[in-house]
Amino acid sequence: MANVISDETIEYVGILAKLELSDAEKEQAKKDMGSMLDYIDKLGELDTSDVEPMSHVFPVNNVFREDVVVNGDDSANILSNAPEEKDGSFVVPKTFD
């Protein structure tokens, strides 16, 4: 395997992805990501120096509209999906003391 994923890399990616992996999951992730990247490295065979990156197949432009509210107040329904709510707001765990 050409791509060897270090413990530090998996740790770092876990932080970016906001995922907490068990030790076994980390080992599996190192293996999986390594073999995926080996496979993806195939793209290196292609000469793309004169090609612009294409994020969308059609030319997409910003779509503007007037800043007018068209939907009603649905906050009660929306909040009913929240794991915890209080006084019309989402409740999150304490972030600082």
Partner: peptide, 22 residues
């Protein structure tokens, strides 16, 4: 998350978008 992370973004993500164009 890895292919978008700094240091790998061009090598993987942008490369894939160029391949898509091809």
């Amino acid at each position: 998350s890895f292919v978008l992370s700094s240091g790998y973004y061009d090598a993987y993500y942008i490369k894939a978008l160029r391949t898509k164009a091809l």
